[in-house]
Design a protein around this nucleic acid. Sequence first.
DNA 1: TTTACATCGGTACGTTTGTACCATTAGTCC
DNA 2: GGACTAATGGTACAAACGTACCGATGTAAA
Lengths: 225, 225
Amino acid sequence: MTNSTTTARRPTRSRRPSHARPRGVARRIALLEATLELLGEIGADALTHRRVAEHAGLPLASTTYWFESKEHLLTEALRYAAERDTGRLHAAADTLIARCDQVDRAPSAAEIVAVVLDPCAGDSPDAPAAERAALLAAYALMLEAARRPALQALSLQWSDAYRDTAGALLRRAGSHRPADDARILMAATDGLLVDRLATGADGDFEPRTELEHLVGALIAAGGPR
Amino acid sequence: MTNSTTTARRPTRSRRPSHARPRGVARRIALLEATLELLGEIGADALTHRRVAEHAGLPLASTTYWFESKEHLLTEALRYAAERDTGRLHAAADTLIARCDQVDRAPSAAEIVAVVLDPCAGDSPDAPAAERAALLAAYALMLEAARRPALQALSLQWSDAYRDTAGALLRRAGSHRPADDARILMAATDGLLVDRLATGADGDFEPRTELEHLVGALIAAGGPR
DNA sequence: TTTACATCGGTACGTTTGTACCATTAGTCC
DNA sequence: GGACTAATGGTACAAACGTACCGATGTAAA
């Protein structure tokens, strides 16, 4: 809401203890998850301390106790989301690589796309809604990052991690320029998913199919030539 | 800000005259442009009536005179942006098609990418900053669209227009599945541009080059086979 | 010239916001 | 078990918000 310099009554003591206790850490995480869920459900401009606290089932003051400001809360939420997602991505990629190494074969386009799409798919029972919210939250934070240097560094890391992983898979699949191809694949993935959310075109096309075609085209390109 | 049901003092008479006068229309457009610029510069959650009015050099009341609510303002801003951009895109595409028809040749990958990238590039003197803001505004509205049906219909139109135009160009360039390829091209474009903004990786890669490679790969795919 | 309505800008109102404050309670270490 | 600090939750406040209101002013049709 940008209530910039409201009520500077005192020199703003620096909350944040040096030795957090387990229960406190759990609360902190609950707040981060509530932030991400709300970011996806109601959007960035409707996100308030009060709503985050309510969604997490915690008192209002817990938000400012664990995060110095709203900006700080957003930054930490992005960091949290990035770490969780890159973790999932790496795990999926490692599984695929192991499976391929076992029988000494290259990963197929479908397998690569499945890995890239995996962190979004989630494994919770209510996947569709959660997936939707997670995606929207991630993209909202990306947009915020364009304006805030602190977030920018985080999304650069996130983006690099995705690209490295996808690049490794593409190289094994025979891509002649894995780094570039990975960048294109990630960009197309994001674009397709956002388009689907923004237009509500749920049945009109299947990102997975489109991406498999793309991966096939990228790998084929530059090969025979 | 979501000040939902504030001050319902009276039955809210329905502003908006039936016959708008030229000066009024100009003001309305000034407000829409201010909205888009601010959306790109400061983000959705910092966008307020007051800031829009100030940015447009108009009194606060003009915002609520011309737009019933903040939601309405956002909706109209998206409509305005979509119309302006698809207009530019069509113009660029028509020019290219005419040029190709004259000497009976197919458009090159570079030319197609130039058309697709054109509406973003703008022609104003301060292109970089303006382009940046326009892009951010567009993507912010896309994200909003995922939650509001009114915006969803608009972004579907926007997306379709882009896809039709790009598809027509790709077909002429020899694509065997122009509709799908166009969708991928648009998605990759959006993804690359957003990534560049979000990560601040300004010199690390050139979307234009990446996209030209992509178009080449898409056209080649399915051809010889 | 009158009439009707579009437009304008200043202002007011009640709500919601971000954040500070502070009296407690609950762990943890000596 | 006393002392220290982390953690908690209720409350307070001023700023900023969305939006309503209204008298003044412009302008096209009658």
